[in-house]
């Protein structure tokens, strides 16, 4: 079985969020970069678990990004994965990324993506990729099991979960529940240096949207503290002032 895992580079979860160039660009100075947590913790780790269950499984990783994305894709290789593909162009928006990945993703039994990136929060690459490849797609999976060539997938729906059976190939976007947490070991880190990392030139997809301007949300007015001996007052404020209950 061949699995493709899509990997995205995102700012660390504690990174300071600020913008430059008249608020048109994310301020990257001093920012630490990580593998997008949903890609790493859920999509990639589930792929590794599947390979542990069936060692004949081949895992490929793909990222759309410049040379600045190489440390991230190497780190992903250190966690697990047999080889990686870097599509050599800066990611601009969901459609462009999906179209670039679709060009190299023709031949896989399973494509796993994180449910969204923690920077642009689009959550659209998986669905777009599925449509471009004409494959079934399950969004926000919380469980993924495989028996032969049939996947049994749970996905989050409003107020519950739905169980779906689906033949491979399928595109699945992963969130919490899909895999158990783990950390890379030293052997993996050493091995990653010799794993193949293929660089391919982009198909030059035209983006359909454009991030024009950023702003920070309005600041909160500050907390109003109420004494623990006067909980009625909190309820009054929530009812009369905030109109929240």
């Amino acid at each position: 079985m061949k699995i493709l895992v899509c990997i995205s580079k995102t700012p660390d979860t504690t990174a300071k969020i600020a913008f430059t160039d008249n608020n048109t660009k994310f301020a990257e100075a001093g920012v630490q970069w990580i593998i997008n947590p949903y890609d790493e913790w859920y999509a990639l780790v589930r792929a590794i678990e599947l390979k542990e269950a069936d060692p004949s499984t081949v895992i490929h990783l793909v990222t759309v990004g410049g040379t600045d994305a190489e440390p991230i894709i190497r780190k992903a290789l250190a966690l697990g994965g047999d080889e990686a593909i870097r599509i050599n162009t800066q990611p601009l928006e969901s459609y462009q990324v999906a179209a670039e990945i679709a060009a190299v993703a023709k031949d896989y039994d399973l494509i796993l993506v994180g449910k969204e990136t923690i920077d642009y929060n689009g959550g659209a690459v998986g669905g777009m990729l599925a449509e471009l490849l004409d494959l079934p797609f399950v969004a926000n999976a919380t469980n993924f099991q495989l028996a032969g060539t049939t996947a049994t997938i749970k996905r989050e729906i409003e107020g519950g979960e739905e169980t779906i059976e689906c033949p491979l190939p399928v595109v699945v976007s992963c969130q919490k529940g899909v895999a158990e947490a783990r950390i890379p070991n030293m052997r993996g880190i050493m091995a990653a240096r010799t794993k193949p990392l293929k660089v391919v030139e982009p198909a030059a997809t035209e983006p359909l949207t454009e991030y024009r301007k950023f702003q920070l949300p309005p600041a909160k007015a500050g907390v109003k503290l109420v004494s623990p001996d006067n909980v009625d007052e909190l309820v009054r404020l929530l009812h009369e002032e905030a109109r929240a209950i």
């Binding site: 969020i17 983006p207 359909l208 949207t209 454009e210 991030y211 024009r212 702003q215």
Partner: peptide, 9 residues
Amino acid sequence: KAIANVAIK
């Protein structure tokens, strides 16, 4: 943590 204005072209 931020808001973006995105143009659809």
